[in-house]
């Protein structure tokens, strides 16, 4: 496949080990290559410990990788620190507590997110004009949060927080949206709601996104491309028409063919 456009994300030979050089050395990413075209919405599945979160953390710059290069929209960010890379990235985590400042108000959290990638100055941190625009955007979530903008985020439910974190991640349009099992901690009904909100935000803003999920059905139903990870490698990469025809059975079969083992993720088969 020839790729005329600059990839929105390009991983080349990414390697990452933890406890490097000790007896506990654990090689987690063993040479990951991945190119995302602008507008790609890729779902990621794989067994526990396959390295999915580690790959997303590598992209986000939580620590430096041990080998390989990472570029976002043609810019090499391999050596860029986490907070500087944030300029390009929107992130939502598995733990609903992780994505927001719980002692701060809803509108304050949004104001922090609206300044992602900008210099924080001594200008007022939350203007009334901003509040009006946040109110409009919160209405879109359809959770009634627009009437509770001065509420501390700590008082919100997990689902409300994930919805808010999603909005925060997309308030400043990111070049790449990273979602790491962001519905895993929610009950099924709430998870479905947050997932449809995810689809909506990605579609409306024409975002490029990577979404890790433990749920194979979700991975099949969402996005235009699916990758499967196993033991630090990408072992499947299915896009376009083939992706549309996928079923859980086909996926499981492909998995055992390529990896030579059974799919081990208790949660993946449920739901």
């Amino acid at each position: 496949m020839s790729e005329p456009l600059t990839p929105m994300l390009s991983l080349k030979g990414i390697q990452k080990s933890f406890h490097r050089g000790t007896v506990n050395q654990k090689d987690v990413l063993k040479g990951i290559d991945l190119d995302l075209a602008p507008g790609d919405f890729v779902t990621i599945i794989g067994g526990n410990g396959a390295g999915k979160s580690t790959m997303l953390n590598a992209i986000a710059g939580v620590w430096k990788v041990d080998g390989g290069t990472i570029s976002v929209d043609g810019v090499d960010v391999t050596a860029t620190s986490e907070h500087k890379r944030a300029k390009y990235l929107g992130r939502v985590f598995q733990d609903p507590n992780m994505g927001t400042a719980s002692n701060m108000q809803i509108d304050e959290n949004l104001a922090l997110a609206a300044r992602r990638g900008k210099l924080r100055t001594l200008k007022w941190g939350l203007t009334s004009g901003e509040r009006a625009s946040y109110r409009e955007q919160l209405k879109m979530l359809d959770l009634g949060l627009e009437d509770r903008m001065s509420t501390k985020v700590g008082l919100l439910s997990g689902g409300q927080r994930q919805a808010l974190t999603l909005l925060m991640a997309t308030l400043q349009r990111p070049k790449l949206l990273l979602l790491d099992e962001h519905t895993a901690a929610l009950d099924p009904k709430t998870a479905a709601k947050v997932l449809s909100l995810t689809d909506q935000l990605i579609e409306e803003n024409h975002l490029t996104a990577l979404m890790v999920t433990h749920n194979m059905r979700d991975a099949i139903a969402h996005g235009n491309r699916l990758i499967m990870m196993h033991d630090g490698h990408i072992i499947l990469d299915i896009a376009g028409e083939e992706k549309k025809k996928l079923t859980v059975e086909i996926l499981l079969e492909k998995f055992s063919q390529t990896s030579g083992s059974e799919f081990v993720n208790d949660r993946a088969l449920l739901g």
Partner: peptide, 24 residues
């Protein structure tokens, strides 16, 4: 109440979130 001050408050609250939002 300023942008800088808010980011300091947020740091005491949730560092990981701060870095994800581009705060040093």
């Amino acid at each position: 109440g300023t942008e800088l001050g808010s980011s300091i408050r947020a740091t005491g609250n949730n560092e990981k979130m701060c870095r994800a939002q581009g705060i040093d």
